[in-house]
Design a binder for these strands. Structure first.
Lengths: 192, 192
DNA sequence: ATGTTCTTGTGAACTCTTTCACAAGCCTCG
DNA sequence: CGAGGCTTGTGAAAGAGTTCACAAGAACAT
């Protein structure tokens, strides 16, 4: 909307642009203050700035990727991340064939440099794209290196202390969700 | 658990294996019948079979990937999908350099064969890994081809009729969520 | 000025989800 | 066989999240 030069936007417009309701948009925003203009809507540029600060993206977040396999390296070249305020600084892998290379401009370092480089590069978020078997161990090392958040692509649950935020992305889990919805819409549940 | 040969599992064990509570596990399962054994727990093998049928995964679901770019092709070789009941049958791309090849054993076909092959191969779920600009158009074509569900990696909202189930995966959105949690844990919200 | 038309911000009502807590049932052991 | 130790299934209570609905304010035309 900023690019399109729009000045104002109503909660109703925001709602159908994002698949929710006008009341929801207003309630949610009101949690962070009341910066709409009655009778007018929200000032687009101010709203953008407010959301940026609410999300903590006034400055780009520094991100590292651990595991330069299929998913890991796909992420290294993902433009969408840069444009939305995340900078992928460095990647790590255990495979000597991958270490030392640069993938989409991001250097791939060996695992023994992990703690050192996370600290030296001021990494705030680690994307975990390792095999599930080592995910927990990497999570431990990352935690002790003082990283603030982990986004894990490993399905396995991670045991962490409360000092960092953790989120999961699991393609198979989402597909299972779809499969459930599809079954519910057609058959209902089939007896085993 | 099946592999480990466990016979029975309690709601409490399931809960800490999956980051929820025992009561939640029991309530959820009870929606689909009462198949636990009082004083014992749930029979592992029966539970597996029940979940499989609840999720509609008694037979593997047939999946196609549209867009063989970075994310698309990473998914084509993703073992986890196969092991969890999804078969990637075919992929599509618009780029002539990619069309005709086989990536991780999956053939990449041109976009003009889309509708025909989705129908011929009995595809139930499409994973959308195209640039956002064409996501809506592909979604329309996929819908009319009678597919039952879409998993979209494009951030843009898709307009679809109620005939299919749609889910989104958005890495940047998850990172924004993490960034918010990190900010909330440290600074609180910073003024814009 | 005044009336009309918008749209926000927000208590209150409502709905949905989670947690509590306990009767009912199964198993083992003395 | 009966007591004791577990664990499910589930109403009822508590807690979250969403929607309603309307007063308050802003712009604009007359």
């Amino acid at each position: 909307m900023c690019d399109r030069g729009a000045e104002l936007v109503s909660s109703a417009e925001l709602a159908d642009g994002s698949g929710t309701t006008a009341a929801q948009v207003r309630k949610d925003l009101s949690n962070f203050g009341s910066f709409g203009k009655r009778g007018q809507g929200y000032a687009v540029e101010e709203l953008r700035a407010r959301l940026e600060s609410i999300l903590g993206l006034v400055r780009p977040r520094r991100v590292a990727v651990v595991g330069a396999g299929k998913i890991g390296s796909a992420l290294l070249g993902y433009r969408d991340l840069t444009s939305r305020g995340f900078e992928i600084i460095v990647a790590f892998d255990i495979d000597p064939d991958k270490v030392g290379r640069t993938v989409f401009g991001v250097p791939v370092l060996p695992m023994n440099e992990l703690e050192h480089r996370l600290a030296a590069d001021g990494i705030e978020i680690v994307i975990l794209a390792t095999p599930p078997a080592v995910a927990q161990e990497v999570a431990n090392r990352v935690t002790s290196a003082g990283v603030a958040g982990i986004l894990s692509f490993a399905a396995s649950k991670l045991e962490t202390d409360g000092s960092l935020a953790v989120r999961w992305m699991d393609v198979a889990l989402e597909l299972e969700g779809l499969s459930f919805l599809i079954s519910a819409a057609t058959n209902g549940v089939e007896e085993p």
